[in-house]
Amino acid sequence: MNEAPQTKMSEPVAAKAYKALERMIVTLALAPGSVTTEGTLIENLGFGRTPIREAIQRLSWEGLLEIRPRAGLAIAPLNAPDWLKVIEARRGVEAVLARAAARFVTQDSAALFRNAAFRMQKAVVAGNAIAFLEADKELDEAMAAAADNPFAARLAAPLQTHSRRFWFRYQADTGLAQAAEGHVQIIRAVLDGDEKAAAREADALMNLLRKHAEAASRY
């Protein structure tokens, strides 16, 4: 898992705008409960109106912001007890994806998993929580691609984004190494083609996140 990262293929502008705006929300650069505008986002992110609007629509559907006509865009608040709800919703679908990924993993998708693991371990060494979140998203995308189940992937994606946001708020300062180990265990099981182990490790990661969420809800 110490291979050098591979070069990514170019992405459509709309996908880049979505990822940039999602990153700002997840890393709290756009503060929970704050209000911004389409024009401000266009100016700050450097994308045109159409890709920004597409990103806004998608993030609104995912529950990360609220479109308020003539009043701007309200960033979703962060209520610690909601993290538990997100994790419980994720639990079943993560096992489905991990099991399917182990069953269908190919040489190409295996490279994506190794690249995500490399970036995740590099982020841990650097103590860089934002880089870790980017690697975590890369892993989720690799899992979705390998599992070949777009229905499960579409269900999981917004829950994963909400969970990253909670994790960044409540756990990023202390939980990098532990979180990385949980993810690496899933990757190993997938690359071994072990469906049962992959589902088991996915559930173990949800248990770890649940413990963090329970602690956060007591703050």
Score class of each variant (00 low, 15 high):
1 M>L: 11
3 E>A: 13
4 A>M: 11
9 M>Y: 08
13 V>F: 02
15 A>L: 11
16 K>S: 09
16 K>G: 03
17 A>W: 01
18 Y>M: 09
22 E>Y: 05
24 M>A: 12
26 V>W: 04
27 T>V: 11
29 A>Q: 14
29 A>L: 06
30 L>Y: 06
31 A>S: 07
32 P>G: 05
33 G>D: 11
33 G>T: 08
38 E>I: 02
39 G>E: 10
39 G>A: 12
39 G>N: 10
40 T>D: 07
43 E>Q: 12
47 F>D: 01
48 G>F: 05
49 R>M: 09
50 T>S: 13
50 T>G: 01
51 P>H: 12
52 I>F: 04
52 I>G: 02
52 I>R: 02
53 R>P: 02
53 R>G: 09
54 E>I: 03
57 Q>Y: 12
60 S>L: 00
61 W>L: 15
65 L>H: 07
70 R>H: 13
70 R>C: 06
71 A>H: 15
72 G>S: 04
73 L>S: 01
75 I>S: 06
79 N>Y: 07
79 N>E: 12
85 K>N: 07
86 V>W: 03
90 R>A: 02
92 G>F: 12
94 E>Y: 14
95 A>F: 01
95 A>I: 06
98 A>M: 13
99 R>G: 11
102 A>S: 10
102 A>W: 01
102 A>G: 13
103 R>K: 15
105 V>P: 01
108 D>N: 13
108 D>I: 12
109 S>T: 15
109 S>L: 09
113 F>Q: 11
114 R>H: 09
116 A>S: 13
121 Q>N: 14
121 Q>D: 12
121 Q>F: 02
123 A>F: 07
125 V>A: 14
125 V>F: 04
128 N>Q: 02
130 I>R: 11
130 I>A: 10
132 F>A: 12
133 L>Y: 03
134 E>A: 13
135 A>S: 14
135 A>M: 02
135 A>Y: 05
139 L>S: 01
142 A>I: 13
143 M>R: 15
143 M>F: 05
144 A>G: 09
146 A>E: 04
153 A>Q: 12
153 A>C: 08
153 A>E: 09
157 A>Y: 06
157 A>R: 15
158 P>E: 11
159 L>C: 01
159 L>P: 05
159 L>W: 02
160 Q>M: 15
161 T>Y: 06
161 T>I: 13
161 T>V: 15
162 H>P: 04
163 S>F: 00
164 R>F: 02
164 R>P: 00
166 F>S: 03
172 A>C: 05
174 T>H: 14
174 T>K: 11
176 L>P: 09
176 L>E: 10
176 L>S: 09
177 A>T: 06
179 A>K: 03
180 A>D: 10
180 A>V: 08
184 V>S: 03
184 V>E: 14
186 I>S: 00
186 I>R: 07
188 R>L: 14
193 G>E: 06
196 K>N: 14
197 A>H: 03
198 A>F: 01
199 A>Y: 04
200 R>V: 10
204 A>F: 12
207 N>D: 15
211 K>G: 07
214 E>S: 00
217 S>D: 12
